[in-house]
Nucleic acid binder design. Structure first.
Lengths: 218, 218
DNA sequence: CTACGTCGGGACGCAACCGTACCGTCGTCG
DNA sequence: CGACGACGGTACGGTTGCGTCCCGACGTAG
């Protein structure tokens, strides 16, 4: 007989607190304070910070979204990118997502939840999008959906969630065009065709600079 | 007359601790413990956790790297992507970089340092790479280097630092090919030419699902 | 060889949280 | 309308980290 309004208040407080200080510094006391709630009310609902965050995040992130068929790969991409851009520009999401992604690198439970709630979804979308394009004859079949998702999601995620650079007006259409072209150029996954163009690079990796324990370059 | 060996031990400990618990949870005591050092030795060198991390990280991440001219855009991209992939697969870097990127969203000082140490560098590389390609006649001039960097760095960063999916053998060459194609398809930045292809999408954004405060989708 | 400064270690008071327990209050179900 | 249960609040002992200070040991520069 827990009161739902209070559960909701706690959930909202967790999201705000996550955005403000990140998962690592999130404290139950701060959540209770922000929600105007006793710690008791929180412990009555979840047994730990991890469980609480997992439940709340997966509930928020867990629905699938319909992707309309615009009739062209480029149009589909543009729609998808706009949805992504909208989500990644939301002030809460743009703080919480990168934070949890980083935390997932050290916490298997978080990694699993995000994998389930976000990336599985993306993968489905990627497959759907590729399938349509193949049906239309816009792409050859056989491309790896994972690689496609990297190509689609990566640039926008980098721009908005990592570099945090503002988006110019025509950015999304241009990016959609570039991605569409890129998708068309991925060799089919069986790695059959050579890639021996003029600039084939010898595998002796270029010098890193001489320091061995300083790989912090992006 | 601070002993350099000890400074180095502290630096290494900070990196390991950063990777293990993240910036948010990083504590001076833990660093001292891990380095086998008194807290005194740390406070003698830096006045705060933030200052310490900034100094150490920017020193590690701050050098520029030479990018050999392979003779083709695709070859240059492949070299660059290999360097990136190597860096992002380093166990310390792959934990620390996303963590600091997320932290940068809340801490302007960290954001500034990363901007300076990493992204400025990337931007230069992007400009160099684009410039060469334009000189070779592989690309039209006028592309926005920021967008190019997004396209180059985004997918690999997403793959390695966010999704954390292993890299298949031929991934890098395929990605290089896709990016090269994508770069060729970006409309020049003055937004002159129309992008009115078949699938132009109307700007009424597609339905998000009906919930207003749940933007946690990626 | 002496003297100075850094070393690791330990102790300090203070603050924040942890997770639990116990209040008296209030709303709601039966 | 009575009883049950969730509520906010407070307090608890315990843990962790802060930033500072002092110690005796060591090593290096002069």
């Amino acid at each position: 007989m827990l009161r739902g309004e209070i559960t909701d208040a706690i959930r909202r407080a967790v999201m705000k607190e996550l955005a403000a200080v990140g998962y690592g510094r999130l404290s139950i006391e701060a959540v209770a304070r922000r929600a105007g709630v006793g710690k008791t009310a929180i412990y009555r609902r979840w047994s730990s910070k991890l469980e609480m965050v997992l439940e709340i995040v997966s509930r928020v992130a867990g629905q699938s979204l319909p992707l309309p068929d615009t009739g062209s790969l480029r149009g589909d991409l543009e729609v998808l990118l706009r949805i992504l851009a909208r989500a990644l520009r939301h002030p809460l999401a743009s703080q919480i997502i990168p934070d949890l992604m980083a935390e997932a690198a050290r916490n298997p439970q978080i990694a699993g939840t995000l994998e389930e709630a976000l990336r599985a979804n993306q993968r489905d979308i990627g497959i759907l999008l590729l399938g349509r394009a193949v049906d239309r004859g816009e792409l050859p079949s056989g491309a790896d959906p994972d690689e496609a998702v990297d190509l689609i999601v990566g640039p926008l995620y980098w721009r908005l969630a990592v570099a945090r650079t503002p988006l110019p007006e025509a950015y999304v259409p241009r990016l959609a065009a570039a991605i569409a072209a890129g998708l068309g150029a991925i060799d089919p996954v069986p790695s059959g065709g050579g890639f021996g163009g003029a600039g084939r690079v010898p595998d002796g990796l270029p010098p890193q600079g001489g320091n061995t324990d300083a790989p912090l370059r992006t």
